[in-house]
Design a protein around this nucleic acid. Structure first.
Lengths: 367, 367
DNA sequence: ATGAAAGCGCTAACAT
DNA sequence: ATGTTAGCGCTTTCAT
C-alpha cells in the first residue's frame, strides 16, 4: 500500500449508469435518496452493481463533492501511540469517541511522531474539524491545524488562543482544595512530583523559575494550586521540593518518589500532579515497606479508574465528559462565530492514602 | 458542522495560479515538488498563498486525484468508545498507532455504535485499508468492510475468512499451559468466569452448548484450553461451572465471582478468560476477606499492565505487537496476493495470585 | 523550468 | 420519476 495506490476501482457510478442505460443521477439516487426513484428501478440498479462488482460510491469523491469528510481529526501532544498508554488520554478519547459516534462521524488520529517532525500529516487529514488535546504552546502541528480552514476545539492546552473554542477544568482550584485537605491534616513538609515542564527532558528538581516558565499551563496551574494552600498556612514555597519527570508512567513516579524522599526524608506528604505518577509512588512506598498513610501521605490528580480501585486520595476531573464536550462543541456548532470556553468542575476525592501528619518526634521513631 | 458544510475555501490552487499569472501545475509543484521550480518562484507562490489565505492543497481533492487517503480504518466490535475502556484494546491500538505513525498514515476510527446500526459509516470512510479488531462472526459492518475494494487485516476474530490477512495468538495453547500450572498445584475444583459468548446479553451460567456455539472464537478457544488441562487429569468438564458476563469490566468480574462461589463454595481456583474480569474477582475476594491465593487462586488472561502491578497469575499475550503486526501487514504489503496468517506466542506468567489447592479438610477450616 | 489538457468519481441544481 | 449540466480542487503525463 505504500507502493502504488490500490487497484483502480472495478466499476464506477458512471460505468454502471452507462451499462444500465440510465443517468448517473439515477444511480447516485439509488444509493443516497431511495425515495427519488421507483423501488423496481432501484433494485435493478443495486442488482447490476452487485453483478459488476461496483462497491458503491467512492467516499473520497463524494467528500470532495459534498464538502464534508464525515470525520473529526484529533491532534495529540505526544506520539499517537502514547495516548493509549495514558489513562487520562484514553478517558478523554472515550468521551470524544462517544460524541463522534452519536453524530455518525469518524475520528481520525493524526500521526504525529517525534520522528516525522513534519507537519504534512495535518495537511493530509481529510476532516471537517480538529480537536487538539493538551498540546504544548509552541507545537508546530498545532499551528498547522490553525491554518486549516476548519473549526477547532482545544482541550486544556494551550491557553490564550484567541477565537478558538476550549474546554478545560480549573486545575488550580482543584489542587488548592486538595492542598487544604492536607494542611488540615497537619502536613507542612510536603514534596511535589510533577510531569514534564518543558520540551527537553529534564529529570530532577524543578527550580522556581522552571515551574513558572513551563510551556505546559496545566502543570503550572496544578503546582500553583498546591502552593496556594501551603502559603495560606505560612509555608515558604521556596523550601518545597518539586521533582520533575519527563516520562509519564508509574515507573517514573516511583523513581521520582525515591529521589524526593532521599533528598528530603522528613517529608510527610507526596503530592503528585497526576494519578499515574501517584500510582508509581504508591508502588515504590509499598516496596520500601513505607506505611501509607501512616508514615507517608500520597495524593494524585485526575481520578482515573485504577486510582479509584487503589483508594487513592486525588482530585477527580471529568475526563470523559471533557472529551464529550469537546466533540459536541465541534459537531453541534451552529453558525455561531463567538468562541465558547467551557470549564468543568473538579471534585476532591479523599481516599485511604492520606492521613494525619505525624509530629517530628513520632515520625523518626516511625521508621 | 452537522448543518451546512464548512465555509467554502477562501482560495483555491486555481485562483492562486490565476492571481499570480502562473499555471496550476506550478502552484501544485510549489507544494509537492519543490525541486521542480526555482526557489524564488516557489517563495513567490508561498508568499501569495499566505497573503490570500490559501491553506494549501485540499486534502480531499488530492486524495481523489492520487487515489490514496493516507489513512487506515479501524473497525471494532463494540461501540467505539468501549475500545478506550478496555486495556487490551488500548494495547492493541497502541501498537497499531505505532505502525501507522511510522508510515505517516492516519488512523480512522469508524463509528459503529449500537444505535447507528447502519453500515453507512463503513462506506463513508476515506481509507486505504481496514483493520478489523476482534469482531463477531456475523457482524454486518464486517461484511461491509469486505465489500470495499481495499485490503483488510483481521485481528483475532472472525476466523476462517478466506483470503484475508490475519494476526492472532494461540489462545487455547496459552490457556492450556495455565491450566496445567493449576492442576500441577493440585487444583481440581475450579470455576471459570468468561466474557460474552453471544450477541444477546446473558449473564449467568453458560451451558456446554453455549460454550461451543459461541460466535466469539477467542472465548471458545480459551475455554477449550482450560478444559484440555482439566480433562488431562481426569476432571469431568461437565461438572465445571462456567459463569458468563455480557459486560467486560472489573465490576462484571466481581459479580461473576460472587455468583460462582455462591453456587460452588468448594471451588479452589477461579480461572478468568481475561485480566479485566480477574481484577474484578480479585477485588471481590479482597472485600470478602477471602485470602488469595491461600484460600482461593485467581488467574487471568492477557497480561495487561494493571495485572502486572497486582501480581496476577495470567497468560501474557503480546497485544501491542499484535497491533503493530496488523498495521505492518496492511501498510507494507507489496503486491502479494497470497494472504498471510501470523500467530504470535503467549507466555505463562506465574504471579502471586495462584497457590496450592488446599485439601478439602484444611479448606473448610480455612473460612 | 513551466504550461496545457485531461480527468479522478461523484452530487446537486435545475429542467423535463 | 428521471436526465442534463456543471463543476468540487487537485495532480499528472506530455509538450514546450
Amino acid at each position: 500500500m505504500s507502493g502504488p495506490p490500490h487497484v483502480r476501482r472495478p466499476a464506477t457510478l458512471a460505468s454502471l449508469a452507462a451499462e444500465l442505460g440510465v443517468s448517473r443521477t439515477t444511480v447516485s439516487n439509488a444509493y443516497n435518496r431511495p425515495d427519488q426513484l421507483s423501488a423496481p428501478l432501484r433494485e435493478k440498479v443495486l442488482e447490476a452493481a452487485r453483478r459488476l462488482g461496483y462497491p458503491g460510491p467512492d467516499p473520497v469523491a463524494r467528500s470532495l463533492r459534498t464538502r464534508r469528510a464525515g470525520a473529526v481529526g484529533l491532534l495529540l501532544t505526544e506520539a499517537l501511540s502514547y495516548a493509549f498508554r495514558d489513562p487520562v488520554a484514553t478517558g478523554f478519547l472515550e468521551g470524544l469517541a462517544l460524541a463522534c459516534e452519536q453524530a455518525g462521524q469518524g475520528l481520525l488520529l493524526v500521526p504525529v511522531s517525534p520522528e516525522h517532525a513534519d507537519v504534512a500529516a495535518v495537511h493530509q487529514a481529510g476532516v471537517d474539524g480538529f480537536v487538539v488535546y493538551s498540546v504544548s504552546e509552541d507545537d508546530p502541528h498545532f499551528r498547522a491545524v490553525l491554518e486549516r480552514p476548519v473549526p477547532t476545539v482545544i482541550c486544556d492546552q494551550p491557553i490564550g488562543v484567541e477565537g478558538v473554542d476550549r474546554v478545560s477544568v480549573d486545575d488550580r482550584d482543584g489542587m488548592r482544595a486538595l492542598g487544604r485537605h492536607l494542611t488540615g491534616l497537619g502536613h507542612r513538609r510536603i514534596g511535589v512530583l510533577c510531569m514534564r515542564l518543558g520540551p527537553q527532558r529534564q529529570d530532577g528538581p524543578a527550580s522556581l523559575a522552571r515551574q513558572q516558565e513551563t510551556s505546559y499551563p496545566v502543570q503550572r496551574e496544578r503546582i500553583s494550586g498546591i502552593r496556594d494552600a501551603l502559603v495560606e498556612v505560612g509555608v515558604d514555597w521556596a523550601s518545597v521540593p518539586v521533582v520533575e519527570r519527563f516520562e509519564h508512567s508509574p515507573e517514573a513516579g516511583a523513581s521520582a518518589a525515591a529521589e524526593l524522599l532521599a533528598g528530603h526524608p522528613d517529608v510527610t506528604a507526596l503530592v503528585c500532579t497526576s494519578d499515574v505518577i501517584a500510582i508509581g509512588a504508591l508502588q515504590w512506598a509499598a516496596e520500601q515497606g513505607i506505611d501509607v498513610p501512616g508514615r507517608l501521605t500520597v495524593t494524585g490528580f485526575d481520578g482515573v479508574p485504577e486510582a479509584d480501585r487503589l483508594g487513592l486520595t486525588t482530585v477527580r476531573q471529568p475526563v470523559r465528559r471533557k472529551g464529550q464536550v469537546a466533540g459536541e462543541l465541534l459537531l453541534e456548532r451552529g453558525d455561531r462565530n463567538t468562541p465558547k470556553y467551557v470549564v468543568l468542575p473538579t471534585e476532591l476525592v479523599v481516599g485511604a492514602t492520606s492521613g494525619p501528619a505525624k509530629k517530628r518526634e513520632e515520625f523518626f521513631s516511625g521508621w
